[in-house]
Design a binder for these strands. Structure first.
Lengths: 213, 213, 213, 213
DNA sequence: CCCTAAACGAGACGGTACGTCTTGTCTTGCT
DNA sequence: AGCAAGACAAGACGTACCGTCTCGTTTAGGG
């Protein structure tokens, strides 16, 4: 999440000089999303973003130092807007299988939406191209979701629905990774169906006792 | 696989003046790999490849029409060289769990090698940036491995080690995706360990009957 | 000469609000001179002047609307300071040749001083780049000197030392122009010597009757 | 004079690779002249030149490393084209006064032409802004003319029309400088008339014996 | 003795140009 | 014919300034 654009309403220091325009912030992020959908990550340029927004290039660079950082925030905003009321993290009804399946199907459906697929691919490209963009992306987007999923699974352990010795991080990696891999291989269509199947198998393995035993 | 790189060594007609061919091919691919390791995908340029190889740009473009295609072949060559004797696909000893665990650990170790991680990330970037590079990459690299894994699992079904109604494609997605996701999040270190844990859980789920449903 | 900076001592209306800081005025002009000496006219920026002075850009623009106007006043101040007691215009001892030679040598020496050459070149650049800066510069700096020189020559005519039909403006142009040309061609070193030689020749021509005609 | 554009016809080394386009050379120089006339030196940009020519910026920078160098050659070409048949240096009919007057009037007329004044001012600005552009300009344009004038005067000395002890360089500086000064002060109109008057006076001084004597 | 208007520093704004880099194509001369 | 070399048109890169604007903070009159 970008700092300068979100603070300021509160009564902190208020740096001197003309404050940054919140309008410009929003317009830039929206233009970024549009251009990503139209041209993909490779076809996105800071120049183009500035031009479409009707803003000078320095105004863009002042806020986001790189394509990766810009894309991170643009996509994040887009996703937050796309999941308005309902939360972004798995529910907890007590039924772990239903909870995780619902959550994963929701994500699969979201990612498979043709308006969102290019955004996810853009994030992936940014992360794959530049390790420090990857870091930012993980902090802002992927990490929290990973943690929330692990946390939900941990509550499943507490409830005795999941065996205690399971590597929950590995499960979360598999769930997220499978989704990502399907988008990368152009298999977004299969995504939702396979997500359900995967939850079946994973939870089967998580319910049972350890491996060979 | 590109054509020009395979002909030339043999003694065919020898059209006027092209003795360099095979040498240039190999040198270009090697330079590409070096530059990927040094600068990442974003820092790779056709210009730079030509310069490092000591070759004119048209010589590069004549063989590979895009950065993506060049990277695909360069990385593929690099991997084939890295797994010299032993095959690249899962073994079949009859013990499905051991086979898949061994195969996945091997891949995890290969990908976690600091000389290979940048190459995998480059492939990911190429696929994420450009759908048609993604297509090429899937055809050449990922697809065959996916198929081989599914095939091995299918033999597990035949042997009664895996339940028949499982979505084997979903499993293969999860396995490959988890690996990829770990590399993207800079978690290559955890890769090998989590790979083993994941195999445990997945095969547990595959052995058991279907979920609650 | 800039207006706002010189008035104020007198008892006019005294606009309300905080008066402009005379200190800032002087500091800006000095910073301008320093930067001109260091980086030349091309390397001078309003931004740089404000930064070096420790002043906001509007404070500069409020006083001088353009680089040219700022440079004009900065250099003028510098010159006035450099010729403290003695006048800036030719003396009148009755001996026209001595008067003009002394005056021209003084100017040549002043302009050849490495601390002043960049200032003169800056004025030239400003005038050459922008006709209306040229106009301002002529009004403030060059014009008065030209007129004073012509006036001194005219008194030579009255005294019978200079022939009456001579084009005194042409002579003044030649004297000033020669100096300027020497600075432009990096020949400041030769300036003082050639100035004397030129006075010899010009006054020889001015004493004698008209040419062949 | 630019090297690469003029040599090449002769049988030297002929660097490898695609040769530079002579057409582009000419078009760039012409666009430069047009833009100078339209917007002056301050309003000239490499960007603008490239755009008007329909050429990429690197194509401009490959040939001329700076605005100054570009302007030098552009103006030089323009002047050579403007004085087609007749020479650019003073004639020698034996009558030194007539020769110099004619030559100077020619130059005054040329420079006073509204199509040429901006070009001369541009040269002046370039020289005044940047000492090394000044050097280039002097080598290419001003120096040779200065030398030619001094040479003509020297022949006047040989012919006994000019006194031997005169500083001919000072005279040449005065002649060129007066012209330049008139352009800078927006006095191009007076130029031709004053040029004639100046020649009268200077040659009067040159004919007579030394100063007071 | 506050009130208020102007100037202050800071710095963001929409822009333009900078000089460099890369892209993919092309045109050379050499081999 | 294929090669290296390198010029070409195009256009993005990230930076520096432009001249204007909007802030919150002085600073002095004048009411």
């Amino acid at each position: 999440m970008h700092l300068a654009s979100t603070m300021g309403a509160m009564g902190e220091v208020r740096r001197r000089g003309r404050p940054r325009s919140a309008t410009a912030d929003r317009a830039i992020l929206e233009a970024t999303r549009e251009l990503l959908v139209e041209n993909g990550y490779a076809g996105l340029s800071m120049e183009g973003v500035a031009a479409r927004t009707g803003v000078g290039k320095p105004t863009v660079y002042r806020r986001w130092p790189s394509k990766g950082a810009l894309v991170a925030e643009a996509v994040n905003h887009g996703f937050l807007a796309a999941t308005p009321g309902r939360g972004v993290d798995p529910p907890d009804t007590g039924d772990i299988e239903a909870d995780i399946r619902q959550w994963l199907r929701g994500y699969a459906a979201l990612a498979a939406d043709p308006r969102h697929t290019p955004l996810v691919l853009a994030l992936t490209a940014a992360a794959a191209e530049n390790p420090q963009d990857a870091e930012v992306l993980y902090q802002q987007l992927t990490g929290p979701r990973h943690e929330a999923l692990v946390e939900r699974l941990r509550r499943g352990v507490d409830a005795g629905q999941v065996r205690a010795d399971a590597d929950l991080d590995a499960v979360a990696d598999a769930v997220t990774g499978a989704l990502l891999y399907q988008l990368l291989t152009g298999n977004a269509a299969a995504s939702e169906r396979r997500a359900a199947a995967l939850v079946d198998i994973l939870l089967g393995g998580l319910r049972a006792g350890p491996g060979e035993a």
